[in-house]
């Protein structure tokens, strides 16, 4: 946003939400929500799943064909912001690659993604890559101080530091945490509890359950909890990662490599497959088996 503001001035902040519809070659109607100003348009093409190719092409074509109104006072190109490019299908990425070049004159793209691993090289070589590193803990703490100052709050630096630590470089989270703390207790105290989102607590409990008992019955309970998480739209890969973290902190060092391997293995399956629950459950079962074997060997060693 800031870049766009620099480019076009304040006009770019007059936003509107539009529902655009497209028709796929198979005559399926697609609807996608875009956020746009007169100068730019922001869209998350991965919202439409496998039909993203059509959206990408049409969107850019449309934007590029509408010329800038007042070329004397503006830049002579529009900007298309595509978010979550790493979630685009291969097909769409290939389509994007040439479309980018074709409409270079009238429109520029800003692609936003978490990691370039999933962006095909052809696109990477056509873009100016800007790596946006996460802010360091000191930076986060500093920002928190600034925010609190503006809000007229007094933030102990001890607490700011702890929040920064917990946020793991995620500034958005840090600010949210800070606000949650304020609601919990104000004035702040240096040692007050910084709360996690409740699904993380839930996940932690689930991990404890797994470590406590390894049996099919327990697995059934765990499955119920996994379903619970999924109904609340926690993405399965996030669940998998969180579960791994919690399980690792609960198990012996010797087991860690094996557990990590199986987590990576099933997470890959999860990405390839369709029914996330199979793979999550498979991971839990694998962990249970590993852990149980470890315990049994431990008992055997005792005698």
């Amino acid at each position: 946003m800031c870049v766009l503001r620099e480019l076009y001035g304040a006009g770019v902040e007059k936003l509107r939400i539009e529902h655009n519809s497209f028709t796929t070659p198979s005559n399926k109607k697609l609807e996608i929500v875009t956020i746009s100003s007169n100068y730019h348009i922001e869209v998350n093409p991965s919202d439409v799943g496998i039909h993203d190719r059509v959206v990408v092409q049409e969107m850019i074509k449309n934007v590029a064909q509408v010329n800038q109104l007042d070329t004397s006072s503006q830049k002579d190109f529009k900007v298309v912001v595509l978010t979550e490019v790493d979630r685009l299908s291969r097909d769409a990425q290939h389509a994007l690659r040439r479309t980018m070049e074709k409409y270079m004159a009238t429109c520029r793209l800003i692609l936003v993604c978490n990691s370039t691993s999933k962006v095909i090289p052809a696109i990477r070589s056509r873009c100016l890559g800007i790596r946006v590193a996460a802010p360091s803990q000191e930076e986060i703490a500093q920002i928190l101080h600034n925010v609190c100052k503006k809000e007229g709050l007094n933030l102990p630096s001890e607490l700011a530091k702890r929040i920064a630590e917990k946020s793991q470089g995620n500034l958005r989270r840090a600010i949210l945490m800070c606000e949650a703390c304020r609601v919990q207790q104000y004035p702040f105290s240096a040692d007050q509890q910084v709360s996690d989102p409740d699904w993380e607590l839930f996940l932690r409990e689930t991990a404890t359950m797994i470590v406590q008992e390894q049996s099919p019955r327990r697995l059934l309970e765990v499955r119920g909890r996994l379903y619970e998480l999924l109904t609340h739209c926690i993405p399965p890969d996030v669940v998998m990662r969180g579960l791994l973290q919690e399980l690792l902190s609960n198990c012996d060092g010797v087991l860690k490599p094996e557990v990590v391997q199986s987590a990576a293995h099933f997470e890959h399956r999860l990405q390839c497959g369709q029914k996330a629950i199979y793979h999550l459950e498979a991971f839990v079962a694998r962990f249970m088996a590993i852990y149980k074997r470890f315990l049994e060997e431990g008992i055997a060693d005792l005698f």
Binding site: Y8, G9, A10, G11, K14, R16, I17, E18, H19, N20, S21, N38, E58, N62, Q65, V66, D70, S73, Q74, K75
Partner: peptide, 25 residues
């Protein structure tokens, strides 16, 4: 925008915008 082939439906009335004041560009 309507001249383009795209079928756009602005879900909300467009806010009146005046860009004439951005002469610093």
């Amino acid at each position: 925008s309507t001249a383009s082939s795209q079928t756009k439906k602005a879900s909300a009335p467009l806010a009146s915008t005046s860009k004439k004041d951005n002469k610093d560009v």
